[in-house]
Amino acid sequence: MERRTIFAGWVLPVCLVAPQLLLTFFFFLWPAAQAMWFSLMRQDAFGIRTEFVGLENFTDLFADPLYLDSAVRTVVFCSAVAVLAMGTALLLAVFADREIRGRTIYRTLLIWPYAVAPAIAAVLWVLLLNPQIGIVAHGLKAIGIIWDYRLNDTQAMLVVILASAWKQVSYNFIFFLAGLQSIPKTVIEAARMDGARGWRRFRTITLPLLAPTVFFLIVVNVVYAAFDTFATIQAITHGGPGKATETLMLKVYRDGLINLDLGSSSAQSVVLMVGVVVLTALQFRFIGRRNAE
């Protein structure tokens, strides 16, 4: 899309766009290029000599069971967070879209958690589920469940999923509600005249019309779960117990900045970048198709 009317000259626009380009170059392009460069290198244990090893870092990575475990874990984690956060949000949005009393108050009370930092969301959930102080944890103990996410792998995963999904519900809710409101009332009325009601109307009319929103949110939620939850996981479990909640993001952080394995962590960064690029490309392809329709 282009404008018809423009201003003449090129000095002014170049000056206007320069700050953003400089920032983009120094903090996006250069680091990305460096990551690719380092991913082809290997440093010795003392960080003195660096040699070019081609794709060896990548082949090592994909042969490393720890890395593959972490990848599978990340996929499970992301899927669970996306499904949980989107499902809850959709349910709430459908009801909040109804013409009921107090719906503006409901909406306000459902969107504020958008502002909560992932790290703070973690604190809230520790408060509920910490084996010593958590109210829910005490409840679980009372009905005979041995609860300690600091020792039990599955429980740890469950906690980080819950805390991560909880924080993302608001974001999804906002988008689902906007999506529902943008469906023309006449379409719904036509479906009513055709005799579709309740669940059937939702499944055959509302949901297909909501598909673009759903797809957009899948991408956003997966990216959120893959990267933004670093703080959540770090605050609750540090990736533990063992490596039970170590997602790819935590692994990059640990290998690159704690263990200082520049080659491997750069290769991991490159893999993550490719992942994001693929997701974004998918999203734009889909949105492009929607616009063309």
């Binding site: 990551a35 990216v223 990267f227 952080y253 690159g256 750069s266 960064s269 970048m273 994001v276």
Partner: peptide
């Protein structure tokens, strides 16, 4: 396509 987390190390 390059969130800060992805390019954190470089």
């Amino acid at each position: 396509m390059l969130p800060v987390e992805v390019r954190i190390v470089p």
